[in-house]
Amino acid sequence: MASHEVTVEAGYVHGYSEREAVRLGEQADTLAALVHAGTAYPAGSRVLEIGCGVGAQTVHLAQASPGARITAVDRSHDSLAQARARVATHAPGADVEWHRADLFDLPFPDAEFDHVFVCFVLEHLPNPRQALTALRRVLRPEGTITVIEGDHESAFFHPASAYARAAIECQIRLQSAGGGDALIGRQLQPLLAQAGYDDVVVRPRTVYTDQTRPALVDGFTRNTFIAMVESVRDDALAAGLMSAGDWDRGITDLHRTAQADGTFHYTFFKAFAVNPSGVATTGR
């Protein structure tokens, strides 16, 4: 296929539609055991969630750590309103404060938090290392950071399809053109180390679906991954990355992997690191 220059507006590549809010909730609920396993914070600890969005992950943080004091931050007024409603419904009584703020201009004192949680945020930023460095300012010495990201090139499936692979590549290219990186999961260890964290540990969290796991086929293959790729159709066609016919064939082939004789695999990466003792950094 021909190469094209891709230009898109920087920001959240998937948009802020009601459909995207539903997809985020489906993703969080489907992957809760995988993503949040091993993450539980002590009662009374101060936890900062960066990029809480519609609260899809906040609910699971609160449920896993009912005594923790969570501060959830996002840049979008609308997303924060949805997050408040979601947490009120699914984690009533959770101790959550909500703040509209930019990651690089957080309205908190130095060393304010014991733990920082960052999930599916760095992939949308043009400067992920600087973001991780900036977070050290509000994290106390010896406090921990947990970062979770995916890697879209880790997707492989049966039946194989060059058209399906090309549709996924459209999403990757559009995200890159907007300043993000859909392959960032594989980079977490060097990013955290370069940002100055100690004791960095990264482990893969693999999703595999087939007909013996129908909940994952629906929740992840169809309603999370394929829905994510489908959401960039208009931008992909406008940028000339694929023809409409090839795109439609690619999406049809992706849905084929969710049928009875199909399989799908994807890898997330979960990182844990410690903010070293010493002089706090502003990250600016």
Rank of each mutant, 00 (worst) to 15 (best):
H4P: 04
E5P: 01
Y16D: 02
Y16G: 00
E18I: 11
V22N: 01
G25R: 09
A32G: 03
A33D: 14
R46M: 09
G51M: 10
V54Q: 10
V54W: 05
A56F: 01
A56S: 15
Q57F: 01
Q57P: 00
A62E: 02
A62M: 01
A72S: 07
D78F: 00
Q82R: 15
A83C: 02
V87L: 10
A94R: 01
E97D: 14
E97Y: 01
W98D: 03
D102Y: 04
D110Y: 00
L122N: 06
P126W: 11
P128I: 04
L132M: 12
V138N: 00
E142D: 09
T144I: 02
T144G: 03
D151T: 04
H152F: 14
E153W: 15
F156L: 01
H158M: 11
A162C: 04
A167Q: 03
C170H: 01
Q171S: 11
Q171C: 07
Q175I: 11
S176L: 14
G179L: 09
G180D: 07
D181E: 05
I184Q: 07
R186P: 11
Q189K: 15
L191A: 10
L191I: 09
L192Q: 03
A193G: 06
Q194C: 03
Q194G: 12
A195I: 09
D199N: 15
D199Y: 05
Y208R: 12
Q211F: 08
T212G: 09
R213V: 13
R213A: 14
P214I: 10
N223M: 06
N223E: 08
F225M: 09
S231L: 12
V232I: 15
V232Y: 10
D235Y: 02
A236W: 00
A239C: 14
G240E: 11
S243D: 12
G245A: 14
G245V: 14
W247F: 12
I251E: 06
Q259H: 08
A260N: 06
G262F: 05
T263D: 12
F269T: 00
F269R: 00
F269M: 04
V274E: 07
N275P: 08
G283N: 06
G283I: 01
